Every structure is written in C-alpha cells, then in structure tokens.
Measured scan of single mutants.
Amino acid sequence: SKIRITWGDKTWEWDGDDEEVWKRILEWARNLGDEELWRHVKEWVDK
C-alpha cells in the first residue's frame, strides 16, 4: 500500500506502510524544516 501526504499544494507518496516507512517519513518531515508538518506526522506515527 501507499502512504500519501498532502500539505498545502504539494503531495508526496511512499510505498508501504510499515514502521520503517513511517520513520523515514518522520525524518523527511524534520529535514523539510516545517515544524507544523513534522508535528502532524508525529501524531500519525504515535497512533
């Protein structure tokens, strides 16, 4: 399956939905430097 994140007018996609993928997404969000996006992603990961 895919994980799709839409933020503003951008959309990103990742293949898979296991823990490793979420770790990569969390790292990606942090590297993007958008605090609010990172917080949202972290909330999803922690669920």
Results as ranks from 00 to 15, higher is better:
Ser1Asn: 15
Ser1Arg: 12
Ser1Thr: 15
Ser1Lys: 15
Lys2Phe: 09
Lys2Leu: 07
Lys2Thr: 08
Lys2Asp: 03
Ile3His: 04
Ile3Asn: 03
Ile3Phe: 02
Arg4Ile: 14
Arg4Gly: 05
Arg4Trp: 07
Ile5Cys: 04
Ile5Gln: 00
Ile5Ser: 00
Ile5Met: 05
Ile5Asn: 00
Ile5His: 01
Thr6Phe: 11
Thr6Glu: 11
Trp7Phe: 07
Trp7Met: 07
Trp7Gly: 01
Gly8His: 08
Asp9Thr: 02
Asp9Lys: 01
Lys10Asp: 14
Lys10Leu: 14
Thr11Pro: 00
Thr11Tyr: 13
Thr11His: 08
Trp12Tyr: 15
Trp12Cys: 01
Trp12Lys: 04
Trp12Gln: 04
Trp12Met: 08
Trp14Glu: 01
Trp14Gly: 03
Trp14Lys: 00
Asp15Gly: 05
Asp15Ser: 09
Asp15Lys: 03
Asp15Trp: 07
Gly16Trp: 13
Gly16Pro: 11
Gly16Asn: 14
Asp17Gln: 11
Asp17Ala: 14
Asp17Trp: 10
Glu19Ile: 14
Glu19Thr: 13
Glu19Met: 13
Glu19Lys: 14
Glu20Met: 11
Glu20Gln: 13
Trp22Ser: 04
Trp22Gly: 04
Trp22His: 08
Trp22Gln: 05
Lys23Asp: 15
Lys23Thr: 14
Lys23Cys: 04
Arg24Asp: 10
Arg24Met: 13
Arg24Ala: 13
Leu26Met: 10
Leu26Arg: 03
Glu27Thr: 06
Glu27Asp: 14
Glu27Ser: 08
Glu27Ile: 09
Glu27Tyr: 04
Trp28Glu: 01
Trp28Ser: 01
Ala29Met: 02
Arg30Val: 10
Asn31Ala: 15
Leu32Trp: 12
Leu32Cys: 05
Gly33Trp: 08
Gly33Pro: 04
Asp34Arg: 01
Asp34Leu: 05
Asp34Thr: 02
Glu35Leu: 07
Glu35Lys: 07
Glu36Cys: 08
Leu37Asn: 01
Trp38Gly: 07
Trp38Asp: 03
Arg39Thr: 11
Arg39Gln: 14
Val41Ser: 00
Val41Ile: 15
Val41Gly: 00
Val41Tyr: 02
Lys42Arg: 12
Lys42His: 09
Lys42Cys: 10
Glu43Thr: 07
Trp44Met: 12
Trp44Val: 08
Trp44Gln: 07
Val45Asn: 06
Val45Leu: 09
Asp46Ile: 06
Asp46Tyr: 03
Lys47Phe: 05
Lys47Met: 12
